[in-house]
């Protein structure tokens, strides 16, 4: 199938799945891919683990252990592992890369540069390595997480950034159309375990040095990398301006 035909096919599927519930999207993903894994951040995306576990009890789950997560998050990952009786692969960065970064720039270089160098080594490189082992992956990404209007998070997408050479990697974002409130309604009504940091005012949870609680009315993005301009990274073409 050519690139354009493949893209159009996924757009059709995205259109079909967009009106479905996260559970229906997950079922589609799990029924169409055997080698598929959930990326679990240790935050409210636990809702996905709960939903997926009800569909397939042996669901593959991995978490990116950057080495800088909160103690509460490590405790929570362990709690989820035991609660669902599942294996959670902790994916860690290459020690030599972390050592080289810390040796040359110290432990908090992201406050002076930006977070990308550290995230690249601790998160993106391990993620890329992990995704080489699967045919599809599932994230808890939602449209309402980004303050920019350009940030489009489709329900299904052809992940060209992390695909094996000459191969296809499909990415599912079953919560794309849900709001934070809907995710929390699900967690509360289904007695899903959650990270204790949420009770301490944390909405978005990442690494300890780069995450802070947010106050009433603040967007969750303001709890991450607050020293950087939130919308600086927005890029891409406005879909509304593209004529098919």
């Amino acid at each position: 199938m050519s690139d354009s035909a493949s893209a159009i096919n996924l757009i059709d599927i995205d259109s079909m799945l967009s009106s479905k519930t996260p559970q229906e999207i997950l079922r589609y993903a799990l029924e169409n891919h055997d080698n598929i894994a959930i990326s679990f951040s240790g935050a409210e995306d636990v809702a996905l683990v709960d939903m997926a576990h009800r569909i397939r009890s042996d669901i593959q789950v991995f978490s990116l252990d950057t080495g800088r997560l909160h103690a509460e998050t490590y405790r929570f990952i362990e709690k989820v592992r035991k609660h669902y009786g599942i294996a959670i692969d902790l994916v860690m960065p290459e020690a030599s890369k972390v050592e080289a970064l810390v040796k040359s720039k110290g432990l908090f270089s992201f406050y002076e540069d930006d977070h990308k160098e550290c995230c690249g080594i601790r998160k993106i490189a391990p993620l890329r390595k992990q995704l080489l082992t699967v045919d599809a992956w599932i994230t808890g990404q939602r449209r309402d997480q980004s303050p920019g209007t350009r940030a489009a998070v489709p329900v299904i997408q052809d992940d060209k950034a992390f695909a094996r050479p000459e191969d296809q990697l499909t990415k599912f974002n079953p919560l794309a159309n849900w709001t934070s409130q809907q995710v929390w309604d699900y967690i509360r009504s289904n007695n899903v375990p959650y990270n204790e940091l949420h009770d301490k005012g944390f909405v978005s949870i990442g690494c300890e040095p780069c995450t802070r609680p947010t106050g009433p009315g603040q967007h969750e993005r303001e709890g991450r990398w607050w020293w950087e301009e939130a919308t600086k990274k927005e890029c891409g073409l406005h879909a509304v301006n593209i004529e098919s």
Binding site: K116, I124, T139, S146, A151, V153, K233
Partner: peptide
């Protein structure tokens, strides 16, 4: 370089901040 590749991925995929 790997650093260049990782930087490009992050520049083009700000949504990865929430992974």
């Amino acid at each position: 370089t790997e650093d260049q590749e990782l930087r490009e991925i992050q520049d083009n995929h700000p949504d990865l901040d929430f992974i």
